[in-house]
């Protein structure tokens, strides 16, 4: 394709091709501190191509696809090209990654042990991971936590953090505008802005840790902590995994071990500061 870049995030290498310059240029700027993978053999190919011949030039419209794709993927405006590239990489992982059990979760690490946070989009797991990553934790990822099925460790997938709507201002104030990507206004998920993780998150992206605490965060409610039964945890994690079925028995064994060994709580919180105080307290008590 006309424009291309190769990126490595955690254990996965992506070759991203685009009919337009802009998405590749934005990736190049925001992933500048990641390893230089120019000319490497990639695990996945991502393509950002026009939805039709005319749509390359006239009101450009991106169809996101690659080695793995969805025929009915919604087209995206070129103004949201960076988001399209990120979605393209996520799509390859979600549909094609087999070397670890994928959990749709954010994760951070301290003293070699890992806090995993899982929840629906809007639960606050990305924002919480981003904020913790600025306060003494190592950021490991805001989208996928990779569970190693042999060792039981969680491995990082520290791509750009995708912040939405109100979280954008909160995190921009905390990290400064230099580490923020362009504001992508009015996407299908509202306003989105990407944040570059801290240098330690990128430098140590090959380094995992054993999971020590699992949280189910929920933003926008009065502060509360609830226990969660192991059966419910298991079911919620299978639903939060895109490759659990494809991996078969090893995934069942690994997830069973994870659920049996890792303490878990559901937490509700009204603000980021409340959430961080709750996380610190629970980490002290349980991890």
């Amino acid at each position: 394709m006309r424009h291309a870049i190769t990126l490595r995030i955690g254990p996965a290498t992506f070759r991203i091709g685009s009919a337009w310059r802009q998405p590749i240029a934005e990736l190049g700027r925001l992933y500048a501190t990641y390893p230089d993978m120019d000319g490497a053999i990639a695990d996945f190919t991502v393509r950002l191509q026009p939805t039709s011949l005319a749509r390359r030039w006239v009101r450009p419209s991106i169809f996101i696809t690659g080695d793995h794709g969805l025929a009915d993927a919604a087209p995206m405006s070129l103004a949201h090209g960076l988001l399209a590239a990120e979605m393209g990489m996520n799509l390859q992982m979600a549909l094609g990654w087999r070397r670890h059990l994928l959990l749709h979760a954010s994760s951070v690490e301290k003293d070699g042990r890992v806090l995993v946070m899982t929840g629906e989009s809007g639960s606050g797991k990305s924002t919480l991971a981003a904020l913790l990553g600025e306060r003494g934790w190592r950021f490991m990822g805001d989208e996928f936590a990779l569970l190693d099925m042999d060792s039981g460790a969680i491995l990082p997938f520290p791509r750009l953090v995708s912040l939405k709507n109100r979280a954008i201002d909160v995190v921009t104030q905390a990290v400064g505008v230099a580490r923020m990507g362009p504001l992508l206004a009015a996407t299908a998920k509202g306003d989105i802005r990407h944040m570059v993780p801290r240098g330690d998150a990128v430098a140590r992206m090959g380094e995992g840790g054993m999971p020590a605490l699992l949280l189910f965060p929920r933003f926008g409610h009065d502060a509360a902590v609830r226990p969660v039964g192991q059966g419910e945890i298991f079911m919620r994690l299978t639903q939060a995994s895109t490759n659990y079925v494809a991996l078969g028995e090893p995934a069942f064994t690994a997830l069973t071990r994870f659920v049996a060994n890792v303490p878990a709580r559901a937490i509700d919180f009204p603000s980021g500061d409340d959430a961080i105080a709750m996380v610190d307290r629970l980490w002290e008590q349980l991890a």
Partner: peptide, 10 residues
Amino acid sequence: DADGWNRLLA
């Protein structure tokens, strides 16, 4: 070479 592998795998 690497480019050949990428094309082959795709």
